[in-house]
């Protein structure tokens, strides 16, 4: 489902003394099947923006189109239930929203809410649990007896059970240990690759934004500053720092190495292996030879 946002402005507490502009005249397009990361410092409007995509928030001005649904300012919103079935939103700390007695009941809640009979909902629940890498014997356990990382995965499975075409992740790995982070991120990478799920991830991690996304959307004070491929967005470290952001650790390291050995600048890379290759290339160039790696 393509997502198109036109002249979208969002006001908090409109027409009161507390009125505040949260988003200002946003225009952007997200292609179906892409992986977009949203970065920006705290309060830049990232969460407000993504909550428009499943109709949780309505534009104060302008409009947003998700697939064939358009939500316009000052008009009654159409068919939001259908939109919310197709756009799954994983909030920050989604495990706080677990509420049922068993994992199975919790996972069935979404599909049944969207009209599936119990047996089909159960089948979806089982599949979703498998997707997040948890064993089937978790189904009869209480979600509250699980570890933090496991609860997070159950909560995510609850969104996946509805089989959304678009998944919005608001800092999906906050508070998880390194392995938990890796597990969750590779899950979404897999869903994105295998099922072409459009993935929109709000994150504070420049490394994750650079490594996983097709495009990076940079926000500042309620506006979109940049939306481009990671290699472009992360090539301007000065601007990012002004926005309270940074470049990924891989590029930070290469920049330091470059300064020391006087090599030539290299194209941005975000994986450890590519960075190692680039470092070697840089060292060889620095001593005046051109070497192959």
């Amino acid at each position: 489902m393509d997502i198109t946002i036109k002249n979208l402005t969002h006001l908090y507490h409109p027409n009161t003394p507390f009125e505040r502009i949260a988003l200002r005249d946003i225009n952007l397009q997200i292609k179906s099947g892409s992986f977009v990361s949203v970065i920006g410092h705290t309060g830049s409007g990232k969460s407000t923006l993504v909550q428009h995509i499943n109709g949780l928030l309505k534009p104060s001005r302008g409009e947003i189109t998700v697939g064939d649904v358009t939500i316009k300012a000052r008009e009654k919103a159409p068919r939001l239930k259908d939109l919310r079935k197709r756009v799954g939103l994983v909030f920050q700390y989604p495990e706080h929203q677990l509420f049922e007695e068993t994992v199975e009941k919790d996972l069935c809640f979404g599909p049944m809410n969207f009209g599936l009979p119990l047996e089909e909902a159960k089948a979806k629940a089982h599949q979703a649990l498998k997707l997040v890498g948890l064993p089937q014997d978790f189904l009869q356990r209480s979600p509250f007896d699980l570890s933090g990382g496991q609860m997070r995965r159950v909560a995510i499975a609850g969104v996946l059970a509805v089989e959304p075409e678009v998944i919005i992740l608001d800092e999906p790995t906050a508070g998880l240990d390194p392995m938990g982070r890796r597990d969750i991120l590779s899950l979404f990478e897999r869903l994105h690759e295998e099922k072409a799920v459009t993935t929109i991830m709000v994150t504070h991690s420049m490394d994750d934004a650079a490594y996983y996304s097709d495009k990076v959307l940079v926000m500042d004070r309620g506006q979109v500053v940049m939306m481009d491929k990671p290699e472009h967005v992360f090539s301007d470290s000065k601007q990012l720092k002004q926005l309270g952001l940074d470049i990924p650790v891989t590029m930070n390291f290469l920049a330091k190495l470059n300064k020391k050995v006087h090599g030539q600048s290299v194209r941005p890379v975000f994986s450890i292996e590519e960075t190692a290759d680039a470092a070697i290339k840089m060292l060889r160039q620095g001593r005046g030879e051109t070497g192959h790696v």
Binding site: G40, H41, H204, G244
Partner: peptide, 11 residues
């Protein structure tokens, strides 16, 4: 206690 885990890079 994980006092920086919810902050942006500058924070």
């Amino acid at each position: 206690d994980e006092a920086t885990s919810m902050l942006d890079p500058q924070g």
